[in-house]
């Protein structure tokens, strides 16, 4: 008897804890808790390494990667019942840089709850792209240089996705390097319609793990971002044929590939 009471107690505590785990808090958009989204850049089945690893695209061209940078923004999460929460605009812009591992997390605050879907855009929405320069702070500050900058001065707008590297099949540029450059942007035009390379990404979290967001822990949605898809996605892009793609009609083919880079690997709750 003496020994039964503690074990019963332990058991009930255990059940209580389990029960707490399973009960989803009531949705309250004032009751915010941390949720991070991790953008883990890979190429095919391997990690992405800058400069010293050779990859091969669907056209059979070998290449190395020197730079990968992209904007992710306008995050929204959905619960199974359809309830959604949109991260406030001012906290919703992130620039992921492969060269800086700290930037791979988009750190959000969302109401406590269990989320089954994550939606965001690859790029910067047209509204923010045309807002007063006062509102272009942080990662949206157009002050970056030509090398790692993500802003087009001559055609006001952000470069959503910047991808550069070397390939023998790329023609030698002025400096003698066989470099390829893909700078993908275009929010649809300010006063004359033009290409829109903003892509909305919608990720179903049910298969690989819902995000159970609570105040006392930090839920992390771990996404794999297959940079190999830039050249080898729904469209096959040849570096030899298109060594440099910037603001042009062709860039739409690459933007369509970008939308297919993201897969949900798992969620750390």
């Amino acid at each position: 008897m003496k020994s039964v009471i503690p074990s019963l107690l332990a058991c009930s505590i255990f059940f209580a804890a389990c029960k707490k785990e399973k009960t989803e808090p009531i949705f309250n958009d004032k009751n915010l808790a941390p949720l991070s989204v991790e953008f883990d850049n890979i190429v095919g089945g391997t990690n992405l390494y800058l400069n010293n690893t050779t990859y091969t695209n669907a056209s059979g061209e070998d290449y190395t990667i020197s730079l990968v940078q992209y904007y992710v923004s306008n995050f929204r999460v959905y619960k199974a019942d359809g309830t959604s929460y949109t991260i406030p605009q001012n906290d919703s812009y992130f620039l992921v840089k492969e060269s800086d591992p700290d930037t791979r997390f988009a750190r959000l605050k969302v109401p406590e709850g269990d989320y089954t879907r994550l939606v965001f855009i690859l790029g910067v929405d047209s509204l923010r792209s045309t807002l007063d320069v006062d509102q272009r702070t942080g990662v949206l500050d157009p002050s970056g240089g030509m090398d790692d900058g993500m802003y087009w001065g001559w055609n006001s707008g952000y470069i959503f996705f910047k991808f550069e590297g070397m390939s023998d099949v790329a023609p030698a540029d002025g400096s003698g390097q066989h470099k390829f450059r893909y700078h993908i942007g275009g929010f649809g035009g300010y006063n004359a319609p033009t290409i829109n390379n903003i892509r909305e990404i919608s990720i179903d979290l049910t298969a690989a793990g819902e995000a159970k967001v609570r105040k006392d822990r930090s839920s992390n949605i771990h996404l794999m971002v297959d940079i190999g898809k830039v050249l080898s996605g729904q469209n096959t892009i040849s570096i030899a044929t298109h060594p440099s793609v910037m603001f042009s009609d062709f860039s739409v083919h690459i933007a369509d590939n970008l939308a297919g880079m993201f897969t949900h690997d798992h969620t750390e709750n």
Partner: peptide, 9 residues
């Protein structure tokens, strides 16, 4: 070419 739509930019 009108590529810039705000004098500030």
């Amino acid at each position: 070419d009108g590529g810039v739509f705000d004098l500030d930019l």
